[in-house]
Design a protein around this nucleic acid. Structure first.
Lengths: 132, 132
DNA sequence: CCTTGACTTGGAGTGCACTCGAAGTTGTAG
DNA sequence: CTACAACTTCGAGTGCACTCCAAGTCAAGG
């Protein structure tokens, strides 16, 4: 649990995480990321741990979690281990949403595949009707 | 291919499809839905076929397709069978996106499940340290 | 000394997909 | 005749998640 001291610039973190520097500052501003360490010139210096957290945030976003809910989660995280039960509840709710979402996508995927097949057959049929 | 004549009000279609009346008008305005038949009093009268199309639109949206791309698709659809190849291409691209999305969600789901497990164990451990 | 470039801040602007408001028309019920 | 409900249009407003801008600071290079 060695809290690595910050060494990475915001640009480096942007490159490492795929978020823009704008988004990194935005995330910090809205409390998704804790107040980042500063160098003497007041520039941000991120640690490796920060990268880990940011990558986790990215995953939460990618599951469809809203910024608002992520703020709640980040806040609980900062409150420490006493909030573990609440965080587990949030994760369980998220798990169910994601599972439901995957199921829905799979259903729609079935229809898409069917249409590709069906339209493909129609195109074939037309090609036969009017051969070159 | 009997083009059923419109009998359903916008409210009924909203109830049937789960879209709001606002959204139904909006979709028509932006060209996702063709100009709907009107009753003598200029009220919209939807057909069963319209419901089918709207439900398909909902599925496209649910896969993450943008309104813009849906406009393209709807436009091609209205141009008739000659656009089948382009529509198949769009569907194939969509299929790949959805498959990729599902894979991503499954990966993140793995992490979520892991965290639920791990945090669950931490909570257990804490409960043992400080028994009631 | 001057320029360049990477950073800082606060606040404004953007794009998307709706969502709503205001004012008007029409048809039915009391 | 009046009230009401359901619809109509056009345009404005909303919420989300960024995304960008202007003006300023600071360190290093020429």
């Amino acid at each position: 649990m060695a809290t690595t001291t910050g060494t990475l610039t915001i640009k480096e973190v942007a490159a490492a995480t795929g978020l823009s520097v704008h988004t990194l500052r935005y995330y910090e501003r809205v409390g998704l990321i804790h107040a980042i360490d500063r160098a003497d010139n007041s520039h941000r210096r991120y640690s490796e741990d920060d990268i880990g957290w940011i990558n986790f945030l990215k995953k939460l976003r990618a599951t469809g979690m809203s910024i608002h809910d992520m703020q709640t989660y980040a806040h609980l995280q900062r409150l420490g281990d006493s909030t573990l039960p609440q965080r587990v509840e949030m994760l369980k709710a998220l798990q169910q949403q994601v599972e439901a979402h995957i199921n829905e996508l799979n259903e729609h995927l079935g229809l898409i595949r069917y249409k590709i097949e069906y339209y493909g057959a129609m195109i074939e049929a037309e090609a036969l009707e009017a051969p070159a």
